[in-house]
Amino acid sequence: MAARSLFRTMLREAAQVDQYNFRNYAIRRVREDFRRNAALSGSEAATALQEGKDALEVLRRQRIVGQLYPAAQSVMDAEASRAFEDAAESVIDPVGGAGR
């Protein structure tokens, strides 16, 4: 189904956006729009689909521009990777680790 595949492509594109705030915004808005437009049919659905395709082009271009000029990593991303490392370590060493 065209809408479903567009949704997946857009989400994948959004997840690759470099800048923390733009990435999270894109993911949130893609989800919201597809949820809201899920019930549409006929010409309304076709219009929404075309809008989605245009938005994908913008998203793709701006994802590339963002990667060409990378900004300093947000503390929020640093936080997330830290939390991920902590979680990973606790999986490896469920007791907590003497060194920490």
Binding site: N21, Q62, A72, S74, V75, M76, A78, R82
Partner: peptide
């Protein structure tokens, strides 16, 4: 303090340029 660029909570001073805006400008 943690490493990384601060979380931006000052949109009254200025807001980031929306990627859709930059896309139209380029």
């Amino acid at each position: 303090a943690r490493n990384g660029a601060p979380a931006y909570l000052d949109v009254q001073a200025t807001s980031p340029v929306d990627p859709r805006v930059l896309d139209a400008m380029l």
